[in-house]
């Protein structure tokens, strides 16, 4: 089990931005990520550590660099929990439409 849940991990806009960069641009070395943020390297490292603990990113060495990649698997946990709620209301709206068609005065 990851030490940090997905909700905590994505609660922060900077961490969501990291995920977006990794999604759109593929694996990034940490230096390249750092260029995109107006924050200290230790702060960015802290965000990356938390994303790693949540299982959302992986880190591997490539020569002298550390490369970060997106691991989208845990996001399914999120979608699995959330999608049903919106789906619930859409189904209920549809049930209401069916009900009204049959609801004679």
């Amino acid at each position: 089990m990851p030490e940090v849940d997905v909700f905590t991990a994505i609660a922060n806009p900077a961490r969501r931005e990291v995920l977006r960069l990794l999604r759109d641009g593929g694996p990034h070395p940490v230096a390249q990520l750092a260029e995109r943020f107006d924050m200290s390297r230790p702060s960015l490292s802290e965000h990356l550590r938390l994303l790693k603990d949540a299982g959302l990113v992986t880190e591997r060495r490539a020569g002298r660099q550390r490369l970060y990649s997106l691991e989208a698997g845990p996001l399914h946990e999120l979608a699995g929990w959330l999608a049903p709620y919106e789906q619930f209301w859409r189904e209920k709206m549809s049930d209401l439409a069916t009900f009204l068609d049959a609801d004679d005065d």
Partner: peptide, 8 residues
Amino acid sequence: WQQQAMRI
């Protein structure tokens, strides 16, 4: 947690 969940 809830704030984020609802935002999502």
